[in-house]
């Protein structure tokens, strides 16, 4: 476990690095309302603990662990804001301050349930995106893959991996047979953001874009050829 203070820093750096540039000490200081000197000191400590990479005049970027914590806290923050505003009817201003405090206490389990209860909102009340639960989401080893919802009608391919933000959803698509190495064919795409009709194995499934976004398919791999896995 890291301290609340560290979480706060990582969250802030996460936000400042969203544009793709490192987070500068002065910006962090301004955002957290502390002196640049103490930011520099903290940055060096975070660099030492492997949460960020810090270069003196450029600023800080997050490492993989830092990213995980920073985005998770931001996720909790925005999810809580949404919860406070939508469910409890608290106004935006107050919800921000309160979410700032609650984000550090909220367990992952409660976070998951809040998200589920609200059907996994993707934006906070101000319209900023709620970071997806990326720790399950892994780029597959196969970089030739594209997302199922982007495929054209008639295209075929092999499922390479599932990118997932919610274990519940993943279970659902697994249960419908969307499992890596299986073959699928896009039969029909309904207009107006309607569902996609997919033949997976011998079954025909209609699934909404929300689910189709999670399935990654390689259309270059030939169907019917199964990759043998080690161990088997």
């Amino acid at each position: 476990m890291v301290s609340e203070n560290v979480e706060e820093y990582l969250e802030c750096i996460w936000e400042l690095t969203q544009g793709g540039t490192p987070a500068r000490t002065t910006d962090v200081a301004k955002k957290l309302k502390v002196s640049p000197a103490s930011v520099t000191e903290m940055m060096q400590r975070l660099d030492a603990s492997g949460h960020i990479t810090y270069e003196k005049y450029k600023g800080a970027t997050l490492t993989e662990t830092g990213m995980e914590i920073g985005s998770r806290i931001k996720r909790k923050h925005r999810l809580l804001e949404r919860f406070l505003v939508d469910v409890l009817g608290i106004d935006n201003e107050k919800s921000h301050d309160e979410a700032c405090r609650l984000e550090h206490m909220l367990s992952d389990e409660s976070e998951r349930r809040i998200s589920q209860m609200m059907n996994n909102p993707t934006t906070c009340p101000d319209g900023d995106p709620i970071p997806a639960l990326d720790q399950l989401c892994l780029r597959g080893p196969d970089d030739d893959s594209s997302v199922l919802s982007d495929l054209d009608e008639g295209s075929q391919g092999v499922i390479t991996h599932l990118s997932c933000d919610d274990p519940q959803k993943i279970r659902r698509i697994i249960a419908m047979g969307f499992v890596p190495d299986r073959c699928l064919k896009v039969e029909e795409k309904l207009p107006l953001g309607g569902p996609i009709l997919v033949k997976v194995g011998d079954c025909r499934v209609a699934l909404a874009k929300e689910y189709a976004d999670l399935v990654h398919v390689n259309t270059k791999r030939r169907c019917g050829k199964r990759q043998r896995h080690r161990g088997g």
Binding site: D86, M118, N119, P121, M176, V205, A206, Y211
Partner: peptide, 14 residues
């Protein structure tokens, strides 16, 4: 009743 709507996923029989 707030919150986002859920999405469809259903098997289509012959």
């Amino acid at each position: 009743l707030k919150f986002e709507p859920t999405s469809l996923m259903v098997e289509i029989p012959d």
